[in-house]
Design a protein around this nucleic acid. Sequence first.
DNA 1: TAGGCCATCTGGTCCT
DNA 2: AGGACCAGATGGCCTA
Length: 358
Amino acid sequence: MLSRLFSEVLPDVQRLAAEWVDDTESDGGKVKEEREPCHLEENDLDEPREGSSRAESEMAGDDDDDDDDVDEEECGDENGGDKPKKRGPKKRKMTAARVERSKMRRVKANARERTRMHDLNSALDNLRKVVPCYSKTQKLSKIETLRLAKNYILALGEILRNGKRPDVVTYVQMLCKGLSQPTTNLVAGCLQLNTRNFLTEPCADGARFHMPSSPFSVHPYSYRCSRLSSPHYQPGAGALNMRAHSYSGPGYEAVYMPGGTSPEYNSPDYEGQHSPPVCLNGGMSGKQQESSDTDRSFHYSMHYSGLTTSRPSHSLHFGPSGARSGGAHSENIPPFHDVHLHHDRAPPYEDLNAFFHN
DNA sequence: TAGGCCATCTGGTCCT
DNA sequence: AGGACCAGATGGCCTA
């Protein structure tokens, strides 16, 4: 089984990784073309900021042409008295021409640095598109993108090693390890939403849900929309807690409580500061709120209806706070219309899935 | 208003 | 020498 796994899946994963690298590289070139040159005029031709004068004086050691000879003579003559001669490169007087050249060098260096950072950001954007949760409007921060990418790679590696599908909870835990609360909310929401799409079509046995485009199995947990008005944070009770406990308005909570048996998920790898908990609909940036109510209603009807099952031992609460047990309140829909798993981009999921469902 | 995130500038260091 | 890379500083924008 494992050999089959590696023979069938690994080439696809490698191919996708190579494609992504190619994308990144080609995009980097494109960015260079598309980059507007306006910054150059705006910034570089401005008066130099603080430090520029220092830069000019320090860079005065640069040599080149015409007026340099005169400057060196001047420096040497200053030591005519009993003062010890200074060693090292002689300080050269800043002539107007030299200042101009120094400025030009700085301008060019600034432009290169901008280009470099734009390329880096472009690569990060490409990375955002291939990690499990991608949103056009709610971009993961740079650091969170890198963390999620790392977790994603580790998770895929784990799947390949084990040769079996993890359950969705394990998968979410792997992905969200070390992520900040808002990102955890977002990723868990994405995954949960994706799960729900397939949960609407129960299997024949009624006990196990299939996820045609996900590499993990789904426990016959209870998936329900419920009003989560009471405090859900239960320290020590064992929870991957994606609750937005500080948010008082209409919002969502994604709370996983795996039977209260596992230790509390506490993001041990998260080195940075923890952002305040954020709800999945209202807590994110205003960009998310660009979505229309129509869109929200549509997605609500697509993803949040008819999802109630009966087993409460493990529950993934991911419902609008205004709806208990699956009640529909379109005003509380998280704007997931632009948040999606990247399955439609033929991610490794697809290939893995082909294996897992064979 | 504080904190997070980001873009940009800048100077230092290393490499080719 | 010039470019790439890096890290610090700074200021703007946004959100809670």
